[in-house]
């Protein structure tokens, strides 16, 4: 068996990366634990540190659920406020990030249902089309386009966003957590309190729904 230099270097890099990921994860967890402990004791600065650490991820999840910056801002603040008020009930059975994402997905899913019932996404979709209709129509690909070539266009992004907004809430949350936020199956299963197998099969079904919508819109 022969190893060339490139293969060996790759292996070393991979090993170092794994070690650093595991190490940072442990550090993160310890750091969160300490911040949560201080926060539960009334230290507002510790809470601010937690907010600064997770605000991008929480805001991103919120934005994916509601698809609007202002709504996302309100939702993200609601998520952190709920976390702040319930921090004393956080028993540390799971990681703080898992607990926070649980709050975020629950609130996000519920806000999504609430807005959907009120036609928020329908109105939004039509207004977007009105604003950018011409541009959108011009950008539509021809029938022979290769799907992979479509990736470069804005239209696929818009189509994806619309497809996500039309998903069932259970499908939407799993797509957000896995495909958009890139969380591991293990973490998603903990957040959603589902077996890992169910998480995977549900994600597959959600992707297939999005795929069909994309095919319909773009081809």
């Amino acid at each position: 068996m022969t190893f060339n230099l490139e293969t060996i270097l790759n292996l070393i890099c991979l090993t170092l990366a794994s070690v650093s990921v595991i190490g940072s994860s442990v550090d993160n967890s310890d750091e969160d634990e300490e911040l949560v402990r201080r926060c539960a004791g009334g230290d507002r600065e510790a809470f601010n540190d937690l907010v600064l650490k997770y605000q991008k991820k929480v805001f991103s999840v919120a934005y994916r659920f509601v698809g609007d910056p202002e709504e996302a801002n309100d939702l993200a603040q609601e998520i952190f406020t709920a976390a702040y008020q319930n921090l004393k009930s956080f028993r540390g059975d799971s990681k703080f990030s898992t607990w926070l994402f649980q709050i975020a997905t629950n609130r996000g899913k519920n806000r999504f249902k609430y807005l959907k019932r009120r036609g928020f996404f329908m109105n939004k979709g039509s207004s977007d089309t009105d604003d950018e209709g011409d541009q959108f129509n011009r950008a539509l690909p021809d029938q022979t386009a290769n799907p992979e070539e479509l990736l470069s266009g804005n239209q696929i992004r818009r189509a994806v966003v619309e497809a996500i907004n039309e998903l069932e809430p259970d499908h939407k949350e799993i797509v957000i957590l896995r495909d958009i936020e890139g969380l591991s199956y293990d973490e998603i299963a903990r957040i959603l309190n589902l077996p890992e197998g169910t998480t995977k099969s549900r994600l597959h079904r959600a992707r297939m729904v999005v795929k069909e919508k994309l095919k319909k819109v773009l081809s």
Binding site: R44, N48, F59, N73, L151, I156, V160
Partner: peptide
Amino acid sequence: KWYRVTVHALANLERVVPPNDFLEQLNSR
């Protein structure tokens, strides 16, 4: 191929960031 495109597109949606005064807004709330 469409499946791959879908997953790729989902993973490459534009990133969004919270407003600069997010923490101030939150604390006041």
